[in-house]
Design a protein around this nucleic acid. Structure first.
Lengths: 337, 337
DNA sequence: CTGTTAGCGCGTTCAC
DNA sequence: GTGAACGCGCTAACAG
């Protein structure tokens, strides 16, 4: 066993198999690909030899030939613990179903790295790209190389203003509206809205939706933050001057978590005195020990949907681009333990 | 713009560039690879043309030629939200540093899928594989194709009984010991140990370590479970008959979370009446609202370490295999908010 | 049914 | 300095 480690063991190719079987390499290729042209006996013979030699087809060669890799690229801004894992799970399940694999790339919220990633995907001839744009991305100009090569791109989460791409997004404005109406219905009068960096469509829409339903009798504050730590610090400071908050809207789990920790730490206001509503896939509400309401943003489902759509596009390039808007579930009360 | 979608736009190759520059394709290749053989003027001319034509080298061809892909495969059992994201982050950062990309594969805790994944990696000539084995994996026989091809594999998390592989693991036995000593020191007399499925090395070692430090004056119970829901149900039932628990050891975040929810829900015992110690990267302790102690298992750091090691092995194939044992930090008290 | 030939796009050896 | 020719491993077109 160990001596294999030091022996130059060339990988077996169809040539080798051909030599052993006394046939031409191309015959081997056809046999292994179950071409109907090859007699069953020969097929079996060749397959047996292939198995014995532990033959692994070189996909680099196959792909080069076929211009297809059965790999799809996923580009995300960063690895959020709240959402990405379930999206990944959803993507992977569908991908497995169709025999595709996943090249996972993180743009680290940087457009230039995003472009690099796109190019890497292209150079490797991925069959399609799933893309959640970075915070600093404003348009799709840097995806040129992909469109040039006719590699389909599907944007999800954040909408991009370009109808030539496939997209899957949520009804973000409506989500905001619903959240506000909910808090009003709960009779909140002093509300804090917690949002991500200002320029992302998803943030803007949810915020605008929320604000569209505010009324004059409500005191409204908003805080923008980039991450959990950031929001935590800002809320800590905020609460000192505003201990009378009775309603909270957070546009995602991460921001909610930071806010939650700040409220617990600052202690100027009782956690249960605040009515909280967030957009979440439902994991965080399970984790924390307080009543919290949420609008369902199911990562597992989203992952599945975008992947199904991308695969469909790959298999039928002529599919017209469209923006699919995902229905969300109505507000759900989190069951206390 | 839109008409590109319907025009057969062939990808530009070195041939095209050669034609435009009036030189041979091989010259183009050399120029773009900064061969010292090419005059600077010609180089610049060729590079300019390449840029103008938005030339994207076909890595499938390059890799086929060089037998190297600058891709490394990561195979994990499933997408745990508590640990995997930070490991991914750690891996990606280091990978970016060296220009490698990540092929992410999930075995869904299934050995046969694990084998498939390995083979897919081999067939695509990945440069190396990072591997956290599935629950049902007992040895490394199914990695044959990788070793045949001399693709280095690095195992992390769960140890595998085969010294011919590179490994990075923790001092799991010692972790168990420390946890037990800690609870004893806190004067716990009625302790519950919560473990994963019995046959995984990581689970066994932590449990054995823990049990090695038990003494006669301690009542000790143990529960084995496969996931969060599973453990939750089991603990719910358990607590009914054992309301006097005063100490808890959970070998990871996921199991802790299920236990936590069960305790809250069952209400037969006060959460704060139990001294809790877990192995965690520290995120969960931040999330939940109770004192909890933990032994640090830093995913970000681990991801970085295993990737650095794998890259080192890739660049120097002769490196002897070794089992690196990661030092863990001593027990840390979680700061209450 | 099977062999021959050609080429996917690139890097490399050997000429000159 | 640069061109020509070859091959990485595989598949597809054309023969027969």
């Amino acid at each position: 066993m160990l001596h294999y480690t030091f022996t130059a063991m060339k990988r077996t190719t169809i040539k080798d198999i051909g030599k052993m079987a006394g046939v031409n390499p191309s015959t081997v290729s056809r046999a292994l690909n179950d071409s109907p042209d090859i007699s069953v006996v020969l097929k079996n013979k060749i397959k047996a030899i292939a198995k014995e030699l532990n033959y692994q087809p070189n996909l680099l060669a196959t792909n080069l030939r076929k211009q297809k890799s059965f790999i799809i690229g996923l580009i995300i801004p960063h690895f959020s613990i709240y959402f990405i894992p379930s999206v990944l799970e959803g993507i992977t399940r569908v991908l497995n179903k169709y025999g595709y694999k996943l090249l996972l790339l993180s743009s680290e919220n940087d457009v230039s790295k995003e472009k690099e990633n796109i190019q890497f995907c292209c150079r490797n001839s991925v069959d399609g790209i799933l893309m959640s744009i970075s915070e600093s991305t404003v348009d799709a100009h840097h995806m040129q190389s992909a469109t040039d090569q006719k590699i389909p791109i599907l944007f999800f989460d954040n909408k991009i203003e370009d109808s030539s791409y496939h997209q899957v997004i949520m009804q973000d404005f409506k989500i905001g509206e619903e959240a506000c109406l909910f808090l009003k219905n709960k009779n909140c009068k002093n509300i804090l809205g917690v949002y991500g960096v200002a320029n992302q469509p998803i943030n803007i829409q949810r915020r605008l939706g929320f604000e569209s339903q505010l009324s004059a009798d409500i005191t409204y504050h908003k805080i923008f933050a980039t991450n959990e730590t950031d929001i935590k610090e800002k809320v800590l400071a905020f609460l000192l001057n505003n201990p009378n908050i009775d309603g909270l809207f957070a546009i995602n789990d991460e921001l909610m978590m930071g806010t939650y920790m700040a409220i617990l730490k600052q202690k100027v206001v009782q956690m249960d005195a605040i009515t909280k509503i967030i957009v979440s896939d439902g994991k965080l509400p399970d984790l924390i020990n307080t009543d919290i309401y949420y609008i369902q943003h199911d990562g597992l489902k989203l992952g599945g949907i975008i992947t199904e759509k991308l695969v469909a596009v790959i298999n039928n390039k002529s599919l017209a681009t469209s923006i699919d808007v995902l229905e969300h579930e109505t507000i759900i009360k989190n069951k206390r333990y």
